[in-house]
Design a protein around this nucleic acid. Structure first.
Lengths: 197, 197, 197, 197
DNA sequence: CATGAATGAGTGTTCATTCAT
DNA sequence: AATGAATGAACACTCATTCAT
């Protein structure tokens, strides 16, 4: 009773916004980015075009919200891994982070591809890299004694490393299996970390 | 006498095509992707819109050609590194490849960003990953004794890794100097390679 | 209460469609066929170009609809003559049919000319000849004992005969008076019919 | 040696002009009227676009010349029939005229359809009706004693009649053989003529 | 609030015509 | 004279956005 308690207004807004964002994804996947018109979005989302403009000031804002949602979902996973493995070893935490990112992308590779290569993204797709960097900063600071210089370098390398694998898994659909790719990602990350010490 | 010898037709075509592609880049950088209209391209390229359509069947073909040119430039650099370091150690070759890619992107980060995030890219940015993969296949086969399985994994990982770093160095190094970032990228790549053995 | 009762949607559509078709006719008459651009049609019809495309998928469809409307109008007149003179003599029925066709064309000869000679007409202008043929088939079958062979021939000749006069009246603006032409048409048609017996 | 003697210039002009006109017909038949562009005409005619403009001031002139050629061909046939049957009965002459027109259209119905319904025709297709009218005036004056009023009417009716049948035979005879249709056209025309007396 | 018909600025593209070679 | 690359005005059509209902 208490947790689902939002005003009807908020709920409806939430539902409509999500329907719109999902519609964009569905259209890009099925008909390509060129088919993403605001009217089509409304139709696929099952709302009127007027309602779309009730929630988004313009088309670009829809894309921005879509990217935002993705970044938030990624951040959620990162935070979760961080908290769940707060007292685990660095190896285990890194494994958890890598697994979270790879799995997130592997789950719907097409979605990831769409977000990365088709939907315009003024903010850059690197928005959640900084969240990842922050998470790693916390993790490393608590566990390793790295000189500031080393820390900086590691914080440059690791997010790129992790994204490379996540990206690779999503793109190379008939390459490595998800499990193998994930293992490879963990191995590469830990190898680098060891080389840092 | 011999090197500049092309038919006037070919030369003119080349010049026009390049002017058009450069115009696209210039417009995206200065006014954003939304300002890239075919008529604007023609104006900035200093040719008539009719001439643009003499060389490109439609707008999408212009973008495709732009990506193509980029891929070719990348391939050129990869090939060069491969040949120049034909008898060098694997470490040196990998260093050369990473450096080549990083430098290529760092040279005009804005251009790279534009090509990656703004200009629609149906073929995927993976076109030159496969060139990179081929180069690495040659390099590894001649130097390391990897089991097929190991080779497969390394060839999946390395191109993604290198591209991620090239991106990363060009985009946000978060305080790291470009040289330091590049050095760290090489170190991370070699760390992975060593872990493969 | 009952006769004007249509949904607003249908009424509005009807009005817009007719305004568009009338606009085409007006433009062709006043400025020639070359001046018939979709934007000009919209302007003259008093609607936005977007609305035109709400009702017609493309420019050709506008022309098709225009011809269609003409054919329907002709068919209406034919049917009316047929029913009104169901129990009249063949002479009277033929006179009614000829009169209907000639008058229809004489009423707005310029319109007819435009439809015949300027507006592209993929379906052929003969669409309403077949309606005329059907009407005559009914009329003759009920009144004359023609052998199948004779019937076939009469059904080939009569529509052509009638169209020749209608066409002639519309085209030859300073030729015979409308009444005279109509009388001449009736005379020729009946002469032929008598020769068939 | 003497009759084909024209200056090379004139001959070349003739050949080019004809090639251009034939090209138009070929394109309309094969690809539809929309495909008739000046550049395509030049290509199909096997000459350069520049040469086309050497002989025609603009595109409309090409269409005009095409109609002109058709009218001239029709006139030739009319004149021939007139002379060949100078001392024949009116029936025979009319039969000859109808046959000439019907056959001319039946020979290449597609061409005729194209010229009538697709190629813009500012002059109206009536150009050769007046030639036909003149021929009939001569024929009737020499053979029948019609009052001026009757003559006027006959000269209004007959060309329209004959053209309608020529059209009709070429287009849709609805099961009738071409010979039968032509015979019936002659019968109908003569029936009208007799009713004039 | 929701709707969706209407809007019209702006786009990609064509093609008649020119003119330097 | 012949060529055909270049031109650019003009077109058909789309689609983000508005607003009366």
């Amino acid at each position: 009773m208490q947790e689902t308690r939002r005003t009807p207004k908020q709920t409806r807004a939430r539902v409509t916004v999500d329907a719109v964002l999902d519609a964009v994804v569905r259209i890009v996947k099925r008909e390509g980015f060129a088919a993403v018109t605001t009217n089509r979005i409304a139709a696929v989302a099952g709302v009127s075009i007027g309602s779309v403009y009730q929630y988004f000031p313009n088309k670009a804002a829809i894309f921005a919200a879509l990217h935002d949602r993705h970044v938030r979902e990624m951040s959620r996973r990162i935070d979760e891994a961080l908290v769940d493995h707060a007292s685990a070893s660095l190896e285990d935490l890194v494994r958890a982070l890598v697994t979270a990112m790879v799995d997130a992308h592997a789950q719907d590779p097409e979605l990831h591809d769409v977000l990365t290569n088709e939907v315009p993204n003024r903010g850059g797709p690197r928005a959640f890299q900084s969240r990842l960097r922050d998470a790693l900063r916390l993790a490393l600071a608590a566990r390793e004694h790295l000189k500031p210089r080393q820390m900086e370098r590691a914080l440059f390398v690791l997010p790129n490393l992790i994204e490379a694998f996540a990206h690779g898994v999503a793109a190379d659909r008939d390459g490595l299996s998800r499990t193998a790719a994930r293992e490879e990602a963990v191995r590469a990350t830990l190898a680098y970390l060891r080389a840092c010490r």
